[in-house]
Computed example of a mutant assay.
Amino acid sequence: MEEARAQGNEIIDSYRDALEKVLQDHKVEAQRQSEIRIKTETINAKQQINQSLAKAQLDLKREQSKIQQDLKDKIFKETLELVHDYMKSADYPDFLIRCIRDALTFANGSSMTIYINPSDESLKSSLEEATGTQLTISTEDFIGGVRCVIRDRNILIDHSFKTQLRDEYDKFLFSGGDGIA
């Protein structure tokens, strides 16, 4: 009887040890899976935060770009108004005369066509008298200034306000104050 009890106790102890081992293995596996799940969820949360942050930054950049474009358009609208005011001033015909004389000097006797803007037609005779050269009224409105063509040398001398304004508009950037344009 004692031998049977000892064997029974031995079987129970070995079964208990086996169950304890299974329990320990299960605890270790559950802990490992829990840590993996926590890491995975942490990574997912960080990715969601990064995506939200990137989207917000993109939205901010779009809004900033739109505002800068609106401001740029306003600035150049005001600039165009200032150009029109300048064209009404007494300095404007002197500017045209200087441009024409510079073109004549550059042409150095080559045949050349000098165009003035249609809005400057009233100045044509006084400009021709002051420069001693014949001027042509352009069919294209280039806001103001002059354009000169030296055909035999394929040269365009462009002192038009339209071209100068467009060039400045294309080059214009807002400085972000922190070195970002």
Rank of each mutant, 00 (worst) to 15 (best):
P118C: 04
S111P: 04
I150D: 00
L82E: 09
A54D: 06
K66C: 05
E20C: 01
A4W: 15
I157C: 02
S65P: 02
V149S: 06
E81C: 01
K21N: 11
C148P: 01
K55T: 09
I43W: 02
N44E: 13
G144E: 02
A56P: 03
T113H: 06
E29D: 15
S126Q: 13
A90G: 07
A56G: 02
T42H: 08
R153H: 08
T131R: 05
T139P: 03
F95A: 13
G145A: 10
A103I: 07
I43M: 02
S122H: 12
R166E: 05
R62I: 05
N108M: 01
M112C: 02
E78G: 00
E35D: 08
I43D: 07
Q31G: 04
R147L: 05
Q47G: 09
F142L: 01
I12F: 12
S138A: 07
L96Y: 11
R153G: 01
E129A: 14
Q68P: 05
G8W: 05
N117C: 09
I97A: 15
I49E: 09
Y86P: 02
I157N: 03
Q68E: 10
I157S: 01
Q47L: 15
L156E: 14
I11D: 14
E140T: 14
V83F: 11
E129L: 14
I116M: 07
E140A: 10
L58Q: 15
E41P: 00
E2G: 11
K124L: 05
A181Y: 12
I36Q: 10
R32I: 05
D120V: 11
S65H: 12
F95V: 14
K66E: 13
I38M: 01
T136K: 15
I116R: 08
T40P: 01
D141N: 12
Q64R: 07
L96I: 13
L104N: 13
Q51G: 13
R62H: 08
C99I: 08
R37L: 10
I75S: 01
R147H: 07
H159N: 12
R98K: 12
D17W: 04
D25M: 01
T139V: 05
I116W: 15
V149F: 09
Y169A: 02
I49A: 15
T136M: 07
A90Q: 07
I180C: 00
Q31R: 06
E41I: 00
D13H: 15
G145V: 09
K61V: 06
F172E: 00
H159S: 14
D102F: 15
Q48K: 03
Q48A: 06
E10T: 14
V149N: 15
T133E: 11
D158L: 04
I100G: 04
D167M: 03
T40L: 00
E20A: 12
D158N: 06
I67V: 09
I100Q: 04
E140M: 07
D17C: 03
K46S: 06
M112Q: 08
Q134Y: 09
A30C: 12
L19W: 13
A107P: 00
D158P: 04
I114R: 04
E10L: 11
D25Q: 09
K39D: 12
A103K: 00
A181P: 00
V22P: 13
Q48W: 00
D167S: 06
Y115C: 01
E168G: 08
R101N: 11
L19F: 11
S122M: 06
D152I: 01
R147E: 14
S52D: 10
S122R: 14
T163R: 15
I114G: 02
N50P: 01
I116P: 05
R153P: 03
N154D: 10
I38N: 08
